[in-house]
Amino acid sequence: MNNQTLFYITTLVVYGGVDVIACLGLSMQFGVAGVVNFGFIIFQAAGAYTAAVLSLPSDRANGAFQQYVAGLHLPFPVPWIGAAAVGGVLAIPFTGLLSRRLRTDNTAIAMLVTAVIANALITNYRPLFNGAAGVSLVPAPLASAIDPLSLNYQYVYCGVVIAVALATFLVLRRLTASPYGRSLRAMRDNDLAAASIGTNVRGRRTAILVLGGSIAGLSGAILVGYINLWAPSAWTYQETVVLIAALIVGGLGNHIGAVVGALVVPLGFEEATRYIPAFGPPGLVPALEWVIIGSLILTFLWFRPQGLVPERRRILGLASVRNPSTESVDLPSLKESSTDA
């Protein structure tokens, strides 16, 4: 395999890993807890911008050709930690949208509108993050240790992305399989009934929005460290639609479905449509990509709403099954036949 192919493959692994991390965050919110966050991309963007301005030197550097806040020139991993923190903290003001007065569908619309407004503001207000042109020349993490243009750097970055994705998956699976995860799924099914048995619905929604926000923020930091630039065109509200499409295709309510969806939709489909030969007026092929993604959502909603990997039923052992002998004092461990994530 020549170097060009290896660069292509490692780039796909990084993109795929970032999509997987983002989809896992959204899967926890949307699939498990029923929080319909159509503004998810805002949190990824916030993480990317944060990591960018924390790792960039002051904006007077590089001939002062761009404007941005901070410019602290902090070493890795501080920008990534900052990105996760900002993604989480940014979620807090949004929790107001999740109060009981706003129904789920209203919340979804409110988040979508917020994503559009945020993008318009950042595009048109240059002092914050250099407006429509975006921030560029973002330093690659650990550039002093390994040459970012080398193939070795690609391998290391791939390894880090896979490790972060795996850790995210394991943490979220642990949460989802716990009594806490069960109460989130209960809340998703019927929030009023969940409140009436003692679940603090608003508190849990807030926690999940913050958790998903920091995961999204981290995914943004990883992406910006790799592509070294970040602009409003990278985080239009349609990008959230792609992630939601991934969850619907993969299967809502289980994290393996989220991983499969992330690999099939944002990575697989967007990559495959790249090979559509150019035809017709300019702009037709990119528009067709959206037609295909939209059709994919509709097809799955209609023919296979449970997705490629359906949420699995969690079978628990009854006490009478677990304790055939009444003399047994030590309770054997809970039988859970589901391997669902």
Partner: peptide, 30 residues
């Protein structure tokens, strides 16, 4: 107002107060 996509047992377990695994940090502890 049952939780439709939870099993009957899960419905019952969901309301038990004081479960140490029914909090974010309790769940993270495994």
């Amino acid at each position: 107002s049952e939780f439709k996509r939870l099993t009957v047992l899960e419905n019952l377990l969901s309301s038990v107060p004081g479960n140490p695994g029914d909090s974010l940090f309790g769940a993270l502890r495994g």
